[in-house]
Design a protein around this nucleic acid. Structure first.
Length: 738
DNA sequence: TAGCGGACTTAGTAATCGATTC
DNA sequence: GAATCGATTACTAAGTCCGCTA
């Protein structure tokens, strides 16, 4: 038995599940007050650990928690699940294999077939593309030229007042029914118009001054442009950071004339405020533009999108994700990035490599310029690339997630995760065996894999020191990132993780581990300095090579996908209550989604307007409550009236009042659910897991089962639309019951 | 087999959109 | 019609992983 406090501090005796391979030490039980059992520090982690300077800890705010508790209990809506913390805290990892089995390969799994004749006969030439697509594209283009997209008003009219033409049912390209290319070929025909470059620099009006040491100073256009980058960020925290200022000043000086360089020697003496005010005024003016002016800009953007935002890949017009070249500016590295503030230089045609078919109409560089290179490499998916000057890495223009090329990859990802499900038990048995190995490298590999599996840690590639922020993943953990407690808060063998992960987001977690893991960790840490590697005989390449031997296509990252999806499925099963109405079920979905986001450590900065928006919602709730008591009072008096009068009219009045009460009660409940959901979501980002880790089939199957409109879960532009709306629906219906 | 570059996915935040309210 | 505010989209940084090279 162990004693484990729930998220608000109640203690409860529970059976020790730490050796249970089903729940991995997280027994699914609540404390006697209905709160989920969870290590108390999770709360600290969620409340305080957004993006951190390492070791800046804050402590749990009990008062806040109590307020949240009040909110939860006071909302009059009984929450049904184990995950009912109003802070959104859920056990950090819930990983029980569900009894029913949606997350498996479908019985009649269709292959990704591309129906076509022999490759050689298959004509991918642009000519054919035009004849096949011309009509549709032309029509679409004409339509879009006439009316800017999405500018209809409530009555379904376009911005120019014309009635919106009835939307034609769009023909979806069922790429998943077609055969995939082999040998790394990604496409056979690719045509596009190239990138859109950042607009040239427009010098400041002469009335807007830069001041040095209190005196107005005219800067050369080159120096002025870089100064404007700083001026535009003046209100941002970045400009207060020493590294940012140092890097900026160094790079800025490189753009100065020798006279400017001689004069401007101290950033503290630079005054950018007039420039900053000018940009703020411009921004305000943009907001205050007339409807017509705004429409004109919108139309121009739409024109650019139509011209440059699409390409033709293998007979299909596909949306490009980022057709605009990144404009110049100051580099905004995340966390304590040593290069923040450096000048990101302007990209010109001579920096650009274009990739397209030989037989396509090649994109033309702007007049008087040349591309760096025109390439015809159909084994890659990018259309345009350039090398950026900060890290020297390559940047790409690629297709939108709705494209075939991205969708296929996404699908493969989830199929690999489903294959992992079939052999995960064997893999777990093996790494548990390996904890006892005579070889240190095997023990390290096995413990690292246990963490990747149990805690959904990232692989943790090695990074070049001093080039980026100091962040780690599993394989690159250092001794200083872990603390071992043989006993902590009534639990045995507790490991405390505290490190900065991707994007310098803090990972803080205290978890009980199995005895052998604990003993191994002690061994790995023996005679090491805090900044030594925990796993000194391991790196991601060794780990992935091992995983590849265990299952074809298996890498560390597949565990994250698998565990995220299986957690969603299991949580949905656990949290969904048959008696609940649609909004309550959606709350359950969001809670399941939240459990995944917590598992994957997807955090966000609380929105700036969070407190205000919560307050607004509370005001609305109060008003609704008043309205409800009024309605109840009216019902009571109507009933009394009916008792005296005993006529039809008064009976009818009672019915009307009853209905009004019911309606208001429903409205109140909706608002309360909304408040709970929002509060729980304060610091958790759901989007990342939904977009990248959750097999859409699970969500769609759940929607189907409970009659929830899919649009409540995925908005229509989310990339999964193609695959779930058609193919998977039929698959789900014929195969399984989630 | 280590090291590195290249290609691609995953990630949080800023900017913009558009529905709602006054 | 303007203001407000949550939702959505755009942007781009920061990861993972693979394959080539010496």
């Amino acid at each position: 038995m162990c004693v484990s406090p729930c998220v608000v501090g109640h203690t409860e005796q529970v059976i020790d599940h730490s050796h249970c391979t089903s729940c991995w030490g997280y027994p699914k039980t609540e404390c006697r007050f209905g709160w989920p059992l969870s290590p108390p520090n999770d709360l600290l982690f969620l409340v305080d650990s957004h993006r951190h300077k390492y070791k800046e800890h804050k402590h749990k705010d009990h008062k806040k928690d109590k307020e949240r508790e009040k909110l939860k209990h006071g909302n009059g809506y009984k929450l049904q699940t184990a995950y009912t913390s109003s802070t959104g805290v859920a056990p950090p990892h819930v990983k029980c294999e569900p009894d029913d089995d949606f997350y498996h390969s479908p019985k009649h799994e269709k292959s990704l077939k591309r129906e076509r004749d022999d490759d050689e006969d298959y004509d991918f030439k642009s000519k054919k593309v035009k004849t096949e697509n011309d009509k549709k594209d032309k029509k679409r283009k004409q339509m879009e030229d006439i009316k800017p997209k999405k500018t209809k008003d409530k009555k379904g009219e376009t911005a120019d007042g014309k009635k919106k033409a009835k939307k034609e049912p769009e023909e979806k390209w069922k790429w998943w029914e077609e055969e995939r290319y082999t040998d790394g070929v990604k496409w056979k025909f690719l045509e596009h118009k190239g990138p859109v470059f950042a607009p040239p620099y427009e010098p400041l009006p002469s009335k807007v001054n830069f001041y040095y040491d209190g005196k107005a100073m005219r800067l050369s256009p080159e120096a002025e442009e870089v100064a404007t980058f700083f001026a535009k960020m003046l209100d941002h925290e970045y400009t207060t950071k020493d590294i940012f200022r140092k890097n900026f000043f160094k790079d800025w000086r490189k753009e100065m004339t020798s006279e400017e360089k001689a004069k401007i020697t101290d950033l503290k003496k630079c005054n950018f405020s007039e420039m900053s005010d000018y940009f703020k005024a411009q921004s305000e003016a943009r907001k205050a533009m007339s409807k017509e002016e705004k429409l004109k800009i919108k139309a121009e953007n739409e024109r650019l999108l139509q011209e440059y935002g699409f390409c033709i890949m293998d007979n299909h017009r596909e949306r490009i994700a980022n057709f605009r070249i990144e404009p110049p500016g100051l580099f905004r590295g995340r966390g304590d990035h040593p290069k923040m503030g450096m000048l990101k230089r302007r990209i010109r045609p001579k920096d650009i490599i274009v990739n397209c078919s030989k037989d396509s109409k090649h994109p033309q560089p702007p007049p008087g310029t040349k591309w760096k290179e025109v390439r015809h490499d159909n084994k890659v998916t990018w259309l345009v690339s350039w090398t950026e000057n900060i890290q020297g890495s390559i940047k790409y223009i690629m297709l939108n997630p709705s494209s075939r090329i991205k969708g296929e990859k996404d699908w493969q990802k989830y199929e690999t995760a489903r294959r992992l499900k079939k052999c995960v038990d064997r893999i777990r048995t093996q790494y548990r065996d390996d904890w006892k190995s005579k070889e240190m490298r095997i023990r390290q590999r096995a413990v690292a894999l246990y963490f990747i599996d149990k805690l959904a840690l990232r692989a943790g590639n090695e990074k070049e020191e001093g080039e980026t922020a100091d962040t780690v993943g599993c394989c690159s953990l250092r001794v200083e990132h872990l603390k071992l407690y043989p006993e902590n808060d009534g639990q045995e063998y507790v490991v405390e993780f505290d490190f900065l992960g991707k994007d310098s987001i803090r990972y803080y977690n205290k978890v009980p581990v199995e005895k052998r893991v604990f003993k191994n960790l002690q061994l790995f840490m023996e005679n090491k300095e805090p900044d030594d590697d925990l796993f000194d005989r391991l790196n991601t390449s060794i780990l992935n090579k091992h995983l590849q031997e265990l299952m074809d296509g298996l890498t560390a990252k597949v565990f994250r996908t698998y565990n995220a999806s299986i957690t969603l499925q299991q949580q949905l099963k656990e949290l969904t209550n048959v008696d609940e109405n649609v909004p309550a079920k959606i709350l359950s979905y969001n809670r399941a989604n939240r459990a995944v986001a917590i598992l994957c450590n997807h955090q966000r900065a609380p929105p700036k307007t969070f407190e205000k928006s919560m307050q607004n919602l509370q005001t609305k709730i109060e008003a609704k409550r008043d309205q409800l008591s009024d309605a109840k009072r009216e019902l009571k008096s109507a009933k009394a009236d009916a008792k005296v009068r005993k006529d039809e009219k008064s009976k009818k009045a009672v019915e009307t009042k009853k209905k009004a009460v019911q309606r208001i009660e429903e409205q109140l409940m909706k608002l309360e659910v909304q408040a709970t959901d929002r509060e729980e979501n304060k610091q958790i980002a759901l989007g990342t897991s939904k977009l990248n880790y959750l097999d859409p089939r699970i969500s769609v199957a759940w929607c189907k089962k409970w009659g929830i409109p899919v649009e409540k879960i995925y908005n229509k532009t989310q990339p999964h639309e193609v695959f779930f709306f058609s193919f998977f629906f039929s698959q789900i219906e014929s195969n399984s019951d989630p």
